[in-house]
Design a protein around this nucleic acid. Structure first.
Lengths: 168, 168
DNA sequence: TATTTTTTTCAAAATATTTTGAAAATTCAA
DNA sequence: TTGAATTTTCAAAATATTTTGAAAAAAATA
């Protein structure tokens, strides 16, 4: 397997896996392309490499910036905008976890709070329903706190001590 | 807000949030319906309640069983199959985390291993590429181990001690 | 075994999402 | 300013996913 082939396989795999967990395939492909490219790239280069339209590239570059996974880089003497990916994989993972926490856990906590606030527990049935809503709140807040703690912690400390303690 | 209204809102919210993180909307709605229904339900009852077709109900009930979130219940004297959801929300959360770990993390670890095995680091460029692949492996294995440890641990111990230690 | 009930399958239809590409908007240099 | 280069937008087209519903298969009863 040669380098070009391996890179293509990487980009393809990343794109396929991403769709399985709710992320746009093209966004994942652009991200992996930039992750594997040492220098920054402009829209035309990405279009050519991945064979996709300008609009698609533009839209997904915006999304990747929203996710905090890539950054715009203005090169002196160049009109075009260049983009470069964060290469520190620990930072990338943290950023993805952070965004997923915000997008997946946040709305759930809010929705459960709304339901709790809107319903008085004046019958047995309502109490039963509110019990489930409350349980989901508790579990979700727990997951949120746990993830948040991991995100705040230092990576090296995590590897060296956390895994040793908890992983048998 | 009355109970029926609150339950509908719950089912609707669950379904909407689920799509955002890559889970089929109907599957999420059937799950929440069963979660809120103390007794078990058969396909016809689910069809009527959610206004969806038999094929759709059948398919998503299979998927929910694959996820380990519901169980088939055979009632004596009844020809039809009945389904009931696991009501312990901690168990539900654990099961969801377990499945997502299997479906999201597992394939990524495998894919990175394949790339590592298939490429000799005989040039600087290849080394650079393998460095990224290796880093992703490390981070992913770390996430996998961490999640696994949390899953193995006892919930109460987790709430009482883990959060206190790590969450400031 | 034949009949009825229930479940499963899957091609076609419906729906949702993604992608394109050209027009509009913006930016920048002269 | 003007005009060329570049980015952004968004309606329409392409693609992907979900849903339907009727036929086939399986299971239970008589």
């Amino acid at each position: 397997m040669e380098l070009k082939e391996a890179k293509d396989k990487f980009i393809h795999t990343w794109g396929t896996l991403a769709t399985q967990w709710g992320i746009n395939r093209t966004m994942a492909q652009i991200h992996s392309l930039l992750l594997l490219t040492p220098k920054s790239m402009n829209a035309d280069e990405i279009m050519a490499e991945l064979q996709i339209s300008r609009g698609n590239v533009n839209m997904n570059l915006r999304d990747l910036m929203d996710w905090g996974l890539i950054h715009k880089q203005l090169l002196p003497g160049e009109r075009k905008e260049y983009f470069i990916a964060e290469k520190d994989v620990w930072k990338v993972a943290k950023q993805i976890a952070k965004e997923r926490r915000r997008r997946e856990i946040g709305p759930l906590i809010e929705a459960m709070a709304d339901l709790k606030d809107g319903l008085k527990p004046d019958t047995a049935e309502k109490e039963e329903f509110l019990k489930i809503v409350n349980d989901i709140s508790t579990v979700t807040v727990f997951a949120d706190n746990t993830l948040n703690s991991l995100l705040k912690a230092d990576e090296n400390w995590l590897i060296s001590s956390f895994v040793k303690v908890f992983n048998r």
